[in-house]
Design a protein around this nucleic acid. Structure first.
Length: 298
DNA sequence: AAAGCGTGGAT
DNA sequence: TATCCAAGCTT
């Protein structure tokens, strides 16, 4: 039995029942789930994903609406640039791929917001192809089970892809199952904080378990501050703009943060990123909102 | 290649 | 309370 075999067997009876794993889910549905899951936990993604798919069942549906609507629907999932990119991705798929999610990995990787992980995840989970799908869960599982180290490095490397590829069975469909199984194992058993080694199908094979599960010395990532950062200010500004139906006067944005310099910098950053657009001298809207007729236009 | 980018729940 | 962490991507 290989690790892949053990993982697949374990997955058959232990996998969570997530909507984007239903066989009827479209490749678009898989892509949306993958983007939403970038740095956002499953429990928060699930309801958002359902709403999103109900409103925009296909890429063409999303592409037909302005980015502002995507940013609103994104709600508080975090990193709203992902909503922008998902919208841009839908537009690109309409333009370049006849409104379909491409199955070719290189075409996937060329889409906005689709990187090393997401591209392979879509090719694998939506189209059943054989690719190493390497996210934080898989890196942790492989780091522990194969290398005996408590945690993986900070970011995915080419070597990680090779290491995971070598664990995949040759058959395409089986490899795809192994990929989702490795991820699920990392998500619910081989967790960062309190791994459930006694419930792990790798228990006897795991190099890390064999050496006594020595814990990592420090955090695997650099701790990221939030309070007081531009990110917090951007979040506050965007929260106001999300709930506005028309142009927002600058004064309404001024009240969210007292430091004028930082506030201006954060707003400029949102404009730079294409999330927000200035409208006239002192009004702001979410990207594309100026294309909707405003009350004063009627 | 390291830093920037949201948000909220768990410990 | 503060820190860690959650299916990363872009520049």
């Amino acid at each position: 039995m290989t690790l892949a075999d053990d993982a697949i067997a374990w997955y058959e009876t232990n996998a969570r029942d997530l909507p984007w794993r239903q066989p009827t889910t479209s490749a678009w549905g898989v892509l949306v789930s993958e983007v939403m899951l970038q740095q956002t936990p499953v429990v928060r993604v699930e309801p958002a994903w359902r709403s999103w798919m109900t409103r925009w069942p296909t890429p063409a549906d999303l592409a037909a609406d302005p980015p502002a609507e995507a940013i609103r629907m994104w709600g508080r999932l975090g990193y709203p640039r992902r909503a922008m990119r998902l919208h841009a991705c839908a537009v690109a798929m309409v333009e370049r791929h006849d409104g379909e999610v491409p199955s070719d990995l290189d075409q996937l990787l060329a889409l906005p917001g689709v990187g090393t992980y997401t591209g392979r995840a879509v090719a694998t989970f939506a189209y059943g192809q054989r690719h190493p799908v390497v996210d934080t869960n898989v890196r942790r599982v492989v780091s522990r089970a194969v290398e005996g180290k408590p945690d993986a490095g900070a970011a995915t490397t080419a070597a990680d892809l090779v290491a995971v590829e070598e664990l995949l069975p040759p058959d395409e469909a089986t490899a795809a199952k192994a990929s989702i199984a490795f991820m699920e194992l990392g998500a619910i058993v081989c967790t960062a904080r309190a791994p459930r080694c006694l419930s792990c199908p790798f228990e006897t094979a795991c190099a890390w378990h064999a050496t006594g599960e020595n814990l990592p010395e420090g955090p695997s990532r650099k701790p990221q501050r939030y309070a007081g950062t531009d990110r917090q200010v951007r979040g506050l500004l965007l929260e106001v703009l999300r709930h506005a139906s028309g142009p927002v006067p600058r004064q309404r944005l001024d009240v969210v943060w007292s430091d004028e310099v930082q506030r201006a910098r954060a707003l400029a950053g949102l404009v730079d990123d294409g999330l927000v657009e200035p409208l006239g001298a002192d009004d702001f809207v979410l990207a594309g909102d100026n294309q909707r007729p405003q009350p004063q236009d009627l």
